[in-house]
């Protein structure tokens, strides 16, 4: 990577006091900010900043699955497309999918398929689009975390939100949430996604070198951080819907809305039948 020059070889990614180059401790997350419902055309959306990562996620659906032969008569497909904008990285990335983004899309789709009540929407697809606008390591975790909020924003029924985080090893120390330099020069990176309520791991990848004990340590860090991130996701959704909630509550206190008969207005139908009809 072209960023290498500014880090001298002998420089330690983490010092004797356990402080990292960006000033964090080993168990500290970068700052995270989430906002739900940021796009007009999508059924659900979220914007997320995580350190220097900037990510947008949109959900469309459930909608008719295309092409038709993909339709599952018993359930909805959850289809994720993770994409990096060409200007999101230091060296311009050619537009369009590469092998890395296809793989990430696949494992994120599978992670969400574990929580979405897919059997409620046979023959449809729930399309999840993640656009990485600015990348600084950890984009799949940022994208998945944002997409989870977008799914809830879209009203997709699910067992829980999914929360994602990574831990790795830098300068011989297991550390949470590696930034780009740490990812490039560290010894290992291990992104995961979890269903916080149940503790189920729904995404797990790892590259580098960890002992089994270090893996346990890394997972402990990630699971602890996921709890914080989960609260940020939930807070974003509460803020998004706070203003609607109270008024909707009044509706809820009477008969359920679905029973609302449309009786109050059979429209005076215009005389609109085609002339031929009158002849029949």
């Amino acid at each position: 990577m072209e960023d290498i020059e500014h880090i001298p070889k002998e420089l330690k990614l983490i010092d004797a006091k356990g402080i990292r180059l960006d000033g964090r401790r080993a168990d500290e997350l970068r700052p995270i900010k989430i906002e739900a419902g940021v796009l007009k055309k999508a059924d659900g959306s979220a914007y997320l900043e995580w350190g220097n990562n900037k990510v947008l996620a949109a959900v469309y659906g459930p909608r008719e699955a295309h092409p038709r032969h993909l339709q599952d008569p018993a359930k909805a497909l959850v289809q994720c497309r993770y994409n990096m904008a060409p200007f999101s990285v230091t060296d311009r990335k050619r537009p369009g999918p590469d092998r890395r983004s296809v793989e990430i899309s696949k494992v994120i789709s599978e992670a969400f398929s574990a929580v979405v009540f897919v059997e409620q929407f046979p023959r449809t697809s729930v399309d999840v689009y993640i656009e990485v606008l600015q990348a600084d390591a950890g984009t799949r975790c940022a994208g998945l975390t944002a997409a989870s909020v977008a799914l809830a924003d879209a009203g997709i029924p699910m067992r829980d939100l999914v929360t994602s985080c990574a831990s790795g090893k830098i300068g011989g120390v297991v550390a949470l949430d590696l930034n780009k330099d740490e990812d490039n020069f560290g010894e290992a990176d291990c992104p995961m996604a979890i269903v916080p309520r149940t503790g189920e791991i729904v995404l797990l990848q790892m590259d580098g070198h960890l002992t089994a004990a270090e893996f346990d340590e890394a997972m402990e860090l990630s699971i602890g951080a996921a709890k914080q991130i989960y609260e940020l996701q939930r807070d974003a959704l509460r803020r998004r819907f706070a203003s609607v909630a109270e008024a909707a509550q009044r509706e809820a206190e009477r008969e359920p809305p679905r029973e609302e008969p449309p009786r109050e207005m059979p429209p005076e139908m215009p005389e609109d039948l085609p002339p031929e009809v009158d002849d029949l």
């Binding site: 055309k41 999508a42 949109a58 497309r81 369009g96 656009e131």
Partner: peptide, 16 residues
């Protein structure tokens, strides 16, 4: 170059 990514509209499709 321009990318009309499917995030932006229900009528945009992934692909070349």
């Amino acid at each position: 170059s321009a990318e009309l990514v499917p995030l932006a509209s229900p009528t945009f499709e992934a692909g070349p």
